[in-house]
């Protein structure tokens, strides 16, 4: 079922959503499932923060910005989104690849 929704939208070579307007919460669930992540309320807190931040600044927030902005510790972010939280959240939230180094 989630495969269906993923095949209706375009992703770039690295797995980021090409057209931000295609994003829906259902799509986020499907992308997360593809990444092996089952979204919880805490995941959504991070996703919503990142989408809001990106809407304000036009850029995906960096890991530190997410940690400072949400108050969720670095440790927990790595548990929620293993192996690179900033990039994984950006993919799931339908945002561009984060550019900052920190």
């Amino acid at each position: 079922m989630s495969d269906d929704i993923l095949s209706t939208v375009a992703f770039d070579a690295e797995g980021y959503l090409v057209n931000p307007d295609d994003w829906t919460p259902e799509l986020a669930e499907a992308i997360a499932a593809r990444e092996g992540i089952q979204l919880t309320e805490k995941h959504w807190q991070v996703i919503n923060f990142c989408r809001q931040k990106a809407a304000e600044t036009g850029k995906s927030p960096t890991l530190r910005q997410i940690s400072v902005g949400t108050g969720i510790s670095t440790k927990e972010l790595f548990q929620l989104f293993p192996k690179g939280p900033a990039k994984r959240v950006a993919k799931i939230a339908g945002l561009k690849k984060p550019e900052g180094c920190i």
């Binding site: 890991l63 790595f78 192996k83 690179g84 939280p85 180094c101 920190i102």
Partner: peptide
């Protein structure tokens, strides 16, 4: 520190 952080961010 910066490269290490980038590496961690890339898994």
């Amino acid at each position: 520190l910066i490269m290490g952080w980038a590496a961690l961010g890339n898994g």
